[in-house]
Design a protein around this nucleic acid. Structure first.
Lengths: 197, 197, 197, 197
DNA sequence: AATGAATGAGCTTTCATTCAT
DNA sequence: TATGAATGAAAGCTCATTCAT
């Protein structure tokens, strides 16, 4: 017998170990160019053993995408919990920019989206998470602007907000040396305009 | 003997034929999951013959990326040639949105960017084209607002403009059923704010 | 401490448990396509534990073949112990036919024979059991026909008898819907002829 | 361009080359223990190239089984074309025996039947060929005995005939050193009885 | 210009087996 | 006695690329 929970905990840790390794590999080479052998090397685990935790490469990709979407929801939660959403969004701009430029998340995000564009399983995960974000931000936004009449084009504004922040990952690839301060200021100007009634 | 130029023309047509086929395949399966066999089938050409026109798969990818960037410059030229850039940009919003949602270019764009995030050769092509776009739009914008003093954060505004339009490709994946009209209006509101002094 | 014999008994039961599970798996997928994991699942026992009772997959196969041959000897004993061997054989025909058609033993028998055709260890087990059967049936037959002079071609008749009954397993595969009564009658006619002096 | 038919002929020859190699490998190790690498080595062809001619290992197995069944039909045709079927069958006994004992076809036959017992695709091929044999032999037998009234238990007799000849492959494994002459005589006795009205 | 036969490395995946607990 | 985590070799299969024709 083993200590209660010990087995499950270890199994979970092993899974995370694989996911971390796979994330690194996928960032470097993309989903399809990264090999199971490379992942196993990075995870410090034999190839065969990975199959004790994941049914295949597809399952690893799916798990990573899920984790990635989870993180998006968490970032979003951090913003929404602020007392003034508009201000929080505006203030988030520089951080979002930095995240896109420095964080290694950008390339992986693009990889995920490219995959979602052809893999229905990935697509539905991505879309569910996105719908959740829109629902949350939307309701917070509604509550925040409750006094000043209904906010026109709420859905459209949410879309544009998503395009703006998501688009930063694209800018990070297209122009990694961009002027951060200037861009942050322009972002803030635009976000401000987006939240006006 | 063949008429002068005929050979070259035919060769060019053959190349385009391969690129069209490859574009279709890459859209369906991504750069790495699409096989040369599939491309050759789609192009109606033997596998071996493709190697008369391209040194390998990498070269095909590069050529496609180049073509894609060229198209971006052309779209951009269309906008810039309008007498009033601000208005042209605002009016371009619905078309850009439609392009992102309906056109099959979205998935490929994401594929290209994901590839650029790890392949230096692709990256430099993407960055050069992007620099050119910024240069052009920037100078047009400068000229347009010449009367009203210098436009603060010009570079930042260009980045945000790029993020906004690029971000539409992301929205198309994350929420393909988005409300187009509402989104177009929100876009126009944001573009307007972006061009104000 | 455990009661004397209890340990051995339990170990034997465990072995049988494994053999039963393996038999089921081998029937379904054959010797080489069945996996130890599948056997362990079917046996309700961990993979590793099976190795306490058997040195490996080969040993399990060997044990199953042995058990199978043992059963053949038992069936044979049942026939031989009858007062009139000839009649017993004739009467055995319908039962042998049913056994081949309904029993799950047919496929496994073919699997064993196919394996024997290339695995010397299996081959020798199969051949020893077969030799024993021929010896027994032969001597009983000799005793039964002692009065009426020597039985010509005794060995050949035994071979043909074996071919006939063994051949039923083949018929079960080649024509599982065969007319049982008609076939049983034809078998009886033929066996009768085989035992005539 | 290539000489008319040359391409097809060569492709067919290549396929045969693979089938011959696979037959040898399957005889030695069985369907599942023989590897594509081994087959490719035996065929003097790269692994990958085999896949130009066969969609996979399963397809090779199926093609071999088909070929094997075809051979059975040919042997059968040889017998049926004789003026006196009864006599032809009786005279075929020693040859059938020799074929089972010396020919390398025995092991493969058992392998095929074992596979048929679990693989539906193989099963249906085997059963179709068998049905055809029964149809042919049956009608010939009917014609031969037309004068002497209807032959009772025709189907049963055909089954037993099949069991008898098929059973020889089993005898070849169980007792490869059997007395051929004695066995041939016993077979002839039995066949004779089987054809009597 | 054009074919597709041919290669062999590399892919994902499975498996029998071992061993620390 | 019993587990299942862990291994590594080998499996079937795919692929970009080359080359004789």
């Amino acid at each position: 017998m083993e200590a209660a929970g010990g087995v499950k905990k270890r199994a979970h840790a092993r899974r995370e170990q694989v996911l971390d390794a796979a994330t690194a590999c996928f960032r470097r080479h993309g989903f399809h160019a990264a090999s199971m052998a490379e992942i196993s090397r990075e995870a410090g685990m034999s190839v065969g053993h990975i199959y004790h935790y994941f049914s295949g490469k597809e399952a690893i990709i799916a798990a990573i995408v899920e984790r990635e979407q989870q993180e998006i929801l968490e970032v979003d939660d951090g913003i929404r919990s602020q007392p003034d959403l508009g201000r929080a969004l505006v203030e988030h701009a520089p951080r979002g920019l930095q995240r896109a430029l420095d964080g290694a998340s950008g390339p992986l995000l693009l990889e995920v989206l490219a995959e979602a564009a052809r893999n229905p399983a990935i697509a539905s995960m991505v879309r569910e998470a996105d719908a959740e974000v829109r629902r949350r931000i939307g309701s917070t936004l509604l509550a925040a602007t409750a006094g000043s009449g209904e906010l026109a084009d709420l859905q459209g504004r949410l879309e544009v907000l998503g395009a703006l922040f998501g688009g930063l990952a694209i800018r990070a690839v297209r122009n990694p040396g961009l002027d951060r301060e200037s861009t942050a200021r322009a972002m803030q100007r635009v976000i401000g305009a987006l939240l006006e009634p």
